[in-house]
């Protein structure tokens, strides 16, 4: 009963750590609690016939992780040399390992619910439905991504 309101109140004040990263010159962020690790030395094996936003699979210490081209999925075109990119490894709800191919990992920033604004569509180049909210870091706008919506299967 009161837990929901408490939770809401908490979400306003509780401090969350957000990992910031760049995808095609767009600053995005996801909660660090979702993240297993960030890898910079990796080899992606392409998977022909898979959806275009799937870059391939990688060997994550004996498990097979699917690597997604986050930029492509968000509708952005990255010009980064693939060799210099990084992979953010997550574990999804089904317990599968997933990797997000991003251009660069920037920083970790702390935010509270008060810092997050609902996303006005025109503020970033990311499709509005993929964005949970917008927050500010110095001069830049950070798009907090809603991964569940992004990787929801139709």
């Amino acid at each position: 009963m009161s837990t929901t309101t408490e939770a809401q109140a908490n979400s306003k004040t509780v401090v969350r750590d957000i990992l910031l990263f760049n995808v095609a010159n767009t600053l995005c962020g996801i909660d660090v609690l979702l993240i297993q690790e960030v890898r910079k030395d990796f080899e992606i094996t392409p998977v022909p016939l898979a959806p275009d936003y799937v870059s391939g699979v990688m060997n994550l210490r004996g498990e097979i992780a699917t690597v997604f081209d986050l930029g492509l999925k968000l509708g952005l075109q990255s010009e980064m040399d693939p060799k210099l990119r990084k992979v953010i490894v997550l574990k999804n709800r089904g317990g599968e390992f997933e990797g997000l191919l991003v251009d660069d990992v920037a920083d970790v920033m702390q935010i509270t619910g008060n810092d997050v604004n609902s996303a006005p569509g025109h503020l970033t180049s990311v499709k509005p439905e993929f964005v949970e909210g917008i927050c500010r870091q110095d001069e830049d706008l950070v798009a907090l991504l809603n991964l569940h919506v992004i990787f929801e299967k139709k």
Partner: peptide, 16 residues
């Protein structure tokens, strides 16, 4: 090893 659900859909691979 099982493949992720996004890849399973293409029905071309049984695993990796």
């Amino acid at each position: 090893k099982p493949l992720g659900s996004h890849i399973k859909e293409c029905r071309f691979y049984s695993g990796a």
